[in-house]
Each structure stands twice: as structure tokens, then as C-alpha cells.
């Protein structure tokens, strides 16, 4: 299980990717930690159940379970927030009006194709808005652990889990490294832990370029 400090490390690194004024949809899990690390940077959070301008969790006495996030948790509204129905919400998502979607993933292939909604062999009974976001957001950031609980790499040559669509992720942020996806494959752009390049190659089994890699851990060199 990933420690809270590693989850925070991923969330902080994703926060660096976001720019002032962007419209952002955050998926469940690690992405929900991101707002804590935005500092002075102002982004507008969209929640697919019908809110633009999502604010933090309310005090207990101000909870209204008809003002909730897509994870069904009580939330607040920021100044300038707006409310709308599900169909308008998905006009935003599917019509290319969301600047960035930050999503979790079960697997990402070497070109950035995502699997984040179904596990083979298990009943497929939930999809939610995941594949709408994959199809429609302008930029897709995947925030997840490098390895699944069984130790297998989530960055893979070829998906073995059901695809979330042909649309590809732009970057993958994990506790060890940040990868960028291009038409030619995967590029390692930053190392965030003391993991060695060899170990990273061994875990993922993916050929990745690393000509411009930034080392953000003091313990290792390129």
C-alpha cells in the first residue's frame, strides 16, 4: 500500500502541472489531494455531477448532502461557482471545455492509452464519467502508483486491461517518476525518488527515452 507521503508526493507533482485559471476535473483517489498543494495558483474545479467552482469540505454543521462531489462527499462552493445539470456538465466534458482531467489508472501503455474502468475477468458494472473525460478533456494527466498491488507495472507496453478509449494521456505522474507520451512512445522526464534507471526499466519493461530527464532526488545521478 502506498504511504500517505507518497500519495502527497504524486499530488504535489501534478499540482505543478496545472496553470493559473485552468478548468480542472479531478478523479477519485490521489487526484482529490491536489487542491491542498496549489498554493496561490487559482484553478477552477469541475465536478461532473453539476458544479464548477468546487470548494473544500464544509464543517460538520454546514454539510448538505445535496451539495456533493462526484465521489459523493460533502463539499462547498467557491465565489463565482455555478450549478448545472448532468447534461450541461457533460457538454463541458465531452465538448472539449475542460482544460485538464487528472485521473487514476489501472494501466497506461507506452503511447499513453489508458485503462481505468474495468478489470478483466471481473464484472464490469461501473464506468461513470471516466471514459467521457478520456474522450473529451483537452489534456489528460494520469496520477497513480507505478506498480499495482501485485507489483506489476502500471506503465506497460500493451494494455491487458480494457481500454478507456483511443485518446491518449499526455503525462503519467507516479511516486518514482514522471513520463511523457508522444507518438513515438514514452519519455522519462523526471525522477522523483531514489530509484535507479535500471530498476525503473526493470519494473516497467517499457523502452523509454531519457535525454532530458530531470533528477529531483539528491541520491542519484543520471
Amino acid at each position: 500500500m502506498l504511504s500517505q507521503s507518497e500519495r502527497i508526493k504524486i499530488a504535489k507533482r501534478v499540482a505543478e502541472e496545472l496553470s493559473e485559471g485552468q478548468i480542472v476535473n479531478l478523479g477519485v483517489g490521489i487526484p482529490t489531494l491536489i487542491p491542498d498543494f496549489l498554493g496561490d495558483k487559482k484553478v477552477f474545479l469541475q465536478s461532473e455531477n453539476g458544479l464548477l467552482g468546487m470548494g473544500p469540505t464544509p464543517d460538520d454543521e454546514n454539510v448538505n448532502m445535496d451539495l456533493i462531489s462526484a465521489s459523493k462527499k460533502p463539499i462547498t462552493m467557491e465565489k463565482g461557482a455555478s450549478l448545472f445539470d448532468s447534461s450541461d456538465s457533460f457538454v463541458m466534458i465531452r465538448g472539449g471545455h475542460i482544460d485538464v482531467a487528472v485521473l487514476g489508472a489501472l494501466q497506461v501503455d507506452q503511447y499513453g492509452e489508458i485503462a481505468n474502468w474495468a478489470v478483466p475477468g471481473k464484472s464490469i458494472l461501473g464506468v461513470g464519467g471516466a471514459i467521457d473525460l478520456v474522450a473529451g478533456a483537452k489534456r489528460i494527466i494520469i496520477a497513480c502508483t507505478l506498480q499495482a498491488k501485485d507489483g506489476k507495472s502500471k506503465l506497460v507496453k500493451k494494455l491487458t486491461f480494457p481500454s478507456s478509449g483511443t485518446r491518449r494521456a499526455n503525462i503519467l505522474v507516479t511516486e518514482h517518476a514522471v513520463f511523457k507520451f508522444t507518438n513515438t512512445g514514452t519519455e522519462l522526464i523526471e525522477i522523483l525518488s531514489d530509484i535507479s534507471m535500471e530498476k525503473l526499466k526493470e519494473i516497467t519493461g517499457v523502452e523509454f527515452g531519457y535525454d532530458n530527464v530531470k533528477i529531483s532526488s539528491s541520491k542519484i545521478t543520471k
Partner: peptide, 14 residues
């Protein structure tokens, strides 16, 4: 059960 992406569900009803 018929599984439909949330946005497709909303648009289909619209």
C-alpha cells in the same frame, strides 16, 4: 444491467 458512460446517458436522455 446495461452500462452506459455517464455523459452518454445524460445526452441520450436529453
Amino acid at each position: 444491467i446495461e452500462l452506459v458512460p455517464q455523459g452518454t446517458l445524460a445526452e441520450a436522455i436529453r
